[in-house]
């Protein structure tokens, strides 16, 4: 937050922090509970990553104040996200496109 944050705002924030903590704890319980159902890999992956994504976003948005952050920070982060996706997608798709099919190690 910039210097403009006042004590009053902060008090309001504190209530939000407690609520986010509750949500994070609940989501952790849910993701573990779902894991005990032993779904097959694809739905399990989707559920686990979806919940982890929500949890990560909650932390980033409220604890790290990204929700009210300045433009310059987003400009830096957007490229990081793009290149992270590039790293994942291109590496994995090169794995799937190999001459002679998958080389089973």
């Amino acid at each position: 937050m910039s210097d403009s944050a006042h004590a009053e705002d902060v008090k309001k924030h504190v209530r939000i922090y407690i609520a986010v903590f509750g949500a994070l704890a609940a989501l952790t319980v849910i993701t573990v509970a779902v894991a005990y159902l032993h779904l097959s890999i694809v739905p399990a992956l989707i559920v686990a990553l979806f919940i982890a994504g929500i949890k990560g976003s909650l932390v980033a948005a409220y604890f790290m104040h990204l929700i009210s952050e300045k433009k310059v920070i987003f400009a830096l982060l957007i490229f990081t996200v793009i290149f992270l996706v590039v790293l994942f997608v291109l590496t994995i798709s090169s794995y799937h496109d190999q001459i002679g099919g998958h080389i089973v190690p």
Partner: peptide
């Protein structure tokens, strides 16, 4: 920006498929 998405041209002879 582009320099991040060209790296595998160093790897053409590693058995890379035609699409990639």
């Amino acid at each position: 920006f582009m320099s991040f998405i060209v790296w595998a041209h160093h790897m053409f002879i590693t058995g890379m498929g035609t699409a990639i």
